[in-house]
Design a protein around this nucleic acid. Structure first.
Lengths: 355, 355
DNA sequence: TGATACTCTGGGAACGTTCCCAAGATATTG
DNA sequence: CAATATCTTGGGAACGTTCCCAGAGTATCA
């Protein structure tokens, strides 16, 4: 009864303050902060009874450790940055999910920034994250060479950087995770050819990023091998959004380019093009077959469903997070490159027979 | 020259350490930390020369303030949580963009958590954010009543909560931002009727959230007014994903329900249903017209383009962030509700003439 | 019995900053 | 010239925590 009144008085006093700290517990139990800390950290140098009393009191007073104090003490923020060209398509979201899978259980927070496919914006994002003192950064970049020195500087100043999907030039010694773009693109072109297509358009991504060049390389290699390569069918787009695909398709039709299929750098490009073609009354896949390179659920949520190279996006995020943790734990650990396997999934957009 | 050597020696010494602090500057310039602090904070009680020397040295040694120390001092983490049912459709991304617009310039970090439409997960997310000591939380909930007490408790323990889109019951005194679901749904039904549709299906969202009920209410009111209401056309779905729309459409066809149009709770439901119908050879909009309630770019990136109630999603995020800042600044400030205007945009999915 | 080992607890520095207080130096005033 | 105001700086506490060091008390040993 006496104890109860004492608790109430104490709680009342506390309610004025923001939050129960270790000092409050120390005062309440007439112990030192050292002892409280030991009790809460399961230190062996403490009497079992004392420990129980502390734990009970912590429960009663609603004690929660102050992570900021811990972070200051250990010189970490337990937060990491995630920088992507955009977050409005499921691509980045899927990767993010993988990142979360690894990092949240470890107590890390993830701070997301979008570069809007703008290298300047990307640069600002990186500097902002640095000013936030993040412990590391996972990034999908939007231009291969533009911010090269910034990456270098940031790493040198002590913030590890891990790249995924679009990676920087090889001169930079960093951990990264990617898929074998060249081979998978090649296989997809073989598939289109095996479906009887001969005039295959490639909607190529920005030539400032490696994947784009790799996939275009696979496309070109196979078509050349089959004597089907036609430079006019290689279409450069400005970006990788729905609109860019739409615009590219319109340009092809306007220029009366003859083609019977499209292989697009991303699912957004593919869908944008497909929508435009359908709006013009063109049948997919009968007149034009369409294939993409992606891994999001978009491919099965359009009509007709899209044949595509399905990248293991969540796995990609998990791998990137794992590589980052390696670097955070020991910044002199060697950089690693993880190459993930992507699989080709054939769906209605290429499987209907050609006219 | 002498100074230069001195700098190099100092830099060399620093390179062993993690980071330049105010103390390093103090030592380097033979000043006190107080003076350094004053110089860096533009305090007026400092000699202009001293200030310049400090700023110059800070530049040279690459000084960056330690935010964690600041956070500890001021009892804030300068971070807020963003809890959403999912992040893989552009809905949440769009809102997030608005949140970023307001919060990043103010130096806040945003931590995103997905509840996967699971109230238990949502609860865990909230507690996790609380353990991160976030200064506030913006949330789109996934079940109206399930976590009611948790919201209450979290607010009581001092973390302000702001709701958007799906909001909790009125018994909770909180800030929130929403659109007028009932009226906009009503207007959309009027539109379908004016297009000559009489058998309008409603793919209703989960009945555990307010919007869902509101939109269904608008649907029912207008149809009743026109003597067109038919309970069999009100379809409850399990979730709001593409699949749920697909399943609902399949069920309607399997049960040979007669209908000439669909009004869906979200664009994902609408698109899922539309894809299934098209796969079954049904023409949209000629045989079935489709309308949705959303605000993402999905509506213009499908074929045919979707008529929909376009919510100002980015604005929604900005409003929520603004309301949250109010609460963070002064937790006794009165709760506010912001009701945003959504506009109806008519597109091909309803505009083609009915057969 | 005296020396030694073990158990448990308290004191206080440290993480990086801000900011209050005090104080020395200089300028201003009557 | 003494008194006072102004400018500029340094000292040190505080934010919440961990952890090293020291020391009091008790148990163990020869």
């Amino acid at each position: 009864m006496f104890l109860c009144v004492r608790l109430l008085l104490f709680l009342n006093k506390l309610s004025m303050m923001k939050r129960t700290t270790i000092k409050d517990l120390a005062q309440y139990l007439s112990l030192s902060t050292s002892t409280i800390s030991r009790a809460l950290l399961n230190d062996k140098n403490i009497h079992a009874d004392t420990k129980n009393r502390v734990i009970e009191a912590a429960q009663k007073l609603g004690y929660k450790p102050n992570v900021t104090a811990l972070n200051l003490k250990y010189g970490k923020t337990k937060s990491i940055g995630f920088v992507v060209p955009e977050m409005t398509t499921p691509f980045s979201s899927k990767v993010l999910q993988g990142v979360h899978n690894i990092l949240y259980p470890l107590g890390y927070k993830v701070i997301i920034l979008q570069s809007d496919e703008d290298p300047l914006r990307e640069r600002e994002n990186l500097l902002l994250l640095e000013s936030f003192n993040v412990d590391g950064i996972i990034i999908n970049l939007c231009h291969e060479t533009h911010n090269q020195e910034i990456y270098q500087e940031i790493i040198q100043r002590g913030t590890p950087l891990v790249f995924f999907d679009r990676i920087p030039q090889n001169t930079l010694d960093v951990s990264k995770v990617l898929v074998d773009d060249h081979i998978k693109a090649s296989l997809m072109i073989e598939h289109l050819i095996s479906c009887g297509r001969t005039k295959i358009v490639h909607l190529m991504g920005p030539s400032t990023v490696r994947n784009s060049v790799e996939r275009a390389g696979g496309y070109q290699r196979i078509l050349t091998k089959h004597n089907l390569y036609d430079a006019q069918l290689m279409v450069k787009t400005n970006g990788v959004g729905f609109d860019d695909g739409r615009i590219a398709a319109k340009k092809l039709l306007d220029n009366k380019v003859q083609f019977d299929s499209i292989f697009a750098f991303t699912d957004t490009l593919a869908i944008g093009a497909m929508n435009y073609l359908q709006e013009q009354g063109i049948k997919v896949p009968e007149e034009i077959a369409i294939a993409s390179f992606s891994g999001t659920e978009f491919s099965v949520n359009v009509y007709p469903q899209l044949t595509s190279v399905e990248q293991p996006l969540t796995k990609m995020g998990e791998s990137a997070a794992t590589l980052l943790i390696e670097k955070i734990k020991d910044d002199s650990s060697p950089s690693r490159t993880i190459i993930l396997d992507a699989k080709l999934v054939y769906r209605a957009s290429t499987l209907g027979k050609a006219l």
